[in-house]
């Protein structure tokens, strides 16, 4: 819960994230609205560190699997995720195009066969 709030606060200036209590049954949602002007996007590396210092230490999580330590960007190598995402996109689109193409080909073939059958049937 708290860690999630930390994450949200971290990204708030960059994304304009609207964060809320994501864990537990707490209905009261806290809105963390980042100002998110364009300039902040690139030059806000100092921001998260300052904000981190102000947060109370993490206490407990109810819901999600936490990352072990903050900051998150040092935790996971991003490249495999990126490669996975892009290869999935390419594969999915390719598979769909192939599937539609094959179905279209089959229907076309059947039409031609039927047409020739009809012609032959008509002559005899």
């Amino acid at each position: 819960m708290i860690r999630l709030a930390l994450l949200v606060v971290m990204f708030a200036p960059i994304l304009g994230v609207r964060g809320a209590g994501a864990a537990g049954d707490s209905v009261a949602s806290t809105f963390v609205r980042g100002a998110g002007p364009a300039g902040d996007l690139i030059a806000s590396t100092g921001g998260p560190a300052v904000m981190l210092a102000q947060q109370p230490p993490p206490q407990q999580q109810d819901e999600f699997i936490p990352i072990d330590e903050l900051p998150a960007q040092d935790q996971l190598p991003a490249a495999p995720l990126l490669v996975a995402a892009y290869s999935f996109v390419v594969l999915a689109l390719f598979a769909y195009v192939v599937s539609v193409g094959r179905r279209l080909g089959r229907v076309q073939q059947e039409m031609e066969r039927l047409e020739s059958d009809l012609k032959r049937g008509g002559r005899t």
Binding site: L4, Q75, L81, A84, A85, F88, A92
Partner: peptide, 23 residues
């Protein structure tokens, strides 16, 4: 098709940015 792309790429980003696959 596009829903599958959205729903697969989203968690791949979220794993890094939010620390979870799914919210």
């Amino acid at each position: 098709l596009f829903g599958a792309i959205t729903l697969v790429t989203g968690p791949l980003w979220a794993r890094k940015a939010w620390g979870v696959w799914w919210q």
